[in-house]
């Protein structure tokens, strides 16, 4: 019986070891796809999430836009944006991801630039910064409520650019 217990104990330890070995990678992915951890090189230290561990993505809330005046107002904000003149024409997608905290403030902006074949590309820096600065300045974000509590959430805006003009804003 004692031997039997020893074997059981050994099997238990082996199983535990195997389970731990099965998922060893702790750095490849964030807590959740699309999470934006704080980066002291990039992020404003004054932006404070309320409870980052419980941050959700925007589509998990009933209101798809979570912006005062809905998407119509977001589009309107960019209608008035004067983009810098450039020598060459560029087209593709600029996606800006960010976090909205439970007070409706934004931070942790990240940018992805793709051509229409979904390959990496680089827009002119001044052009990109102009769109980024306007996105950072948007101040109509609505704190998301779930279970009667405000939550931090991740949001993104994708700008479809054709020949240096914003032709659409998604989602």
């Amino acid at each position: 019986m004692t031997n039997y217990m020893k074997y059981l104990y050994l099997i238990f330890i082996l199983l535990l070891f195997h389970a731990c070995m099965g998922i060893t990678d702790t750095s490849k992915y964030p807590r959740h796809v699309g999470d934006i951890p704080f980066d002291s090189q990039l992020d404003d230290v004054n932006f404070e999430p309320c409870n980052e561990k419980k941050a959700l993505t925007h589509y998990r809330f009933g209101d798809p836009d979570l912006y005062e005046g809905e998407k119509y107002m977001i589009v309107h904000e960019f209608d008035n944006l004067v983009l810098p003149e450039m020598d060459s024409l560029q087209s593709g997608y600029i996606t800006i991801r960010f976090m909205v905290n439970c007070n409706g403030q934004t931070g942790r902006f990240r940018v992805e630039q793709l051509d229409f074949d979904y390959k990496d590309m680089r827009f002119n820096e001044a052009f990109l910064n102009s769109i980024l600065a306007k996105t950072v300045s948007l101040n109509g974000w609505i704190p998301a409520i779930r279970d009667n509590k405000p939550h931090d959430y991740y949001k993104y805006l994708t700008f479809k650019i054709i020949d240096n003009k914003i032709v659409d804003i998604l989602p």
Binding site: V33, G34, T95, E112
Partner: peptide, 30 residues
């Protein structure tokens, strides 16, 4: 787990599909 699935069964299409879903939903299109 999807990574592990793809490594063991690279011809199993559903794992790629399922793994892609959260990237699309969060604006990580590439």
């Amino acid at each position: 787990l999807f990574d592990e699935a793809i490594k063991i069964g690279p011809k199993y299409a559903w794992a790629y599909y399922q793994k892609s879903v959260p990237f699309f939903k969060r604006g990580l299109f590439a």
